[in-house]
């Protein structure tokens, strides 16, 4: 479904991503983890068409991000790490605006918004002004936005950052539901939490994917320990270099 093939990206002379390749099938939830500056957000931005890779291709059902970007973007839902929202709107107004902007047919807009509100646990807050929401609820609104048009590919950057445990659990439930009809890529540091619902884990170090684990092949504690050791080894190496 999603094919990422040998992509690289640089900011000037500084190489951010090097030869990244992986694929994601429908129904899969792939977690991308790594320490700060590993290139997770840059990778997510390339997958969301916000940045153009220097080399390589990204295809979703054969649709290339560079050749048919609008068609590609029709099939994705993206949650940005900064959770940007229009503070002057209510939750329902915002989601209605976003669903309409994504080109949903007018007769379906209300249904899509209701579904997104329900799946994100926001049904009772549809008339609340966004500026009054806490960070956790803002994240839920962003998640509702990403889920609203039933995308084939969900890209969630730092989904769990700043959320308390019940909200993390609620997000996990929403994702598990969404993954029945979509491929999901989640970037973040909360590997222990993400192992509850992801099917694969990609570990990134300095712009490269250094390991890929299928969660069904490992004991959870063992996998967490292995990933922690890899990331700690990277930190040690960085300290040695310093």
């Amino acid at each position: 479904m999603l094919d990422v093939d040998h992509i690289s990206f640089s900011y000037g002379a500084r190489r951010i991503l090097t030869d990244i390749s992986f694929d994601v099938a429908p129904g899969e939830i792939v977690a991308v983890t790594g320490s700060n500056g590993a290139g997770k957000t840059t990778l997510m931005k390339i997958l969301a068409c916000l940045l153009m890779q220097d080399a390589g291709t990204v295809r979703l059902h054969g649709v290339d991000t560079l050749q048919r970007p609008v068609k590609y973007r029709h099939s994705i839902g993206y949650l940005s790490e900064h959770v940007p929202l229009y503070n002057d709107m209510t939750v329902q107004e915002y989601l209605t605006y976003r669903v309409r902007l994504k080109g949903e047919r007018t007769m379906r807009v209300r249904r899509r918004v209701s579904e997104a509100l329900a799946v994100s646990g926001l049904s009772g807050m549809h008339n609340t002004r966004i500026r009054l929401l806490s960070h956790g609820y803002r994240k839920r609104v962003s998640l509702a936005d990403a889920l609203s048009t039933h995308p084939k590919l969900l890209l969630l950057d730092d989904l769990l950052a700043g959320l308390d445990r019940p909200q993390r659990t609620a997000c996990g439930t929403a994702l598990s539901t969404a993954s029945s009809r979509a491929a999901v890529v989640v970037a973040g540091h909360e590997i222990d939490e993400m192992l509850n619902w992801c099917t694969r884990v990609l570990v990134m170090i300095r712009g490269r994917i250094v390991a890929m684990f299928r969660t069904s092949d490992f004991d959870r504690a063992e996998l967490t320990a292995r990933i922690d050791r890899m990331l700690a080894g990277q930190s040690d190496a960085q300290e040695d270099l310093a």
Binding site: V70, R73, I76, Y78, Y86
Partner: peptide
């Protein structure tokens, strides 16, 4: 400034 440009640019619009 708010980062909303990311959401607009990742939407299926020209």
């Amino acid at each position: 400034a708010t980062g909303m440009i990311d959401l607009l640019m990742s939407s299926p619009i020209r």
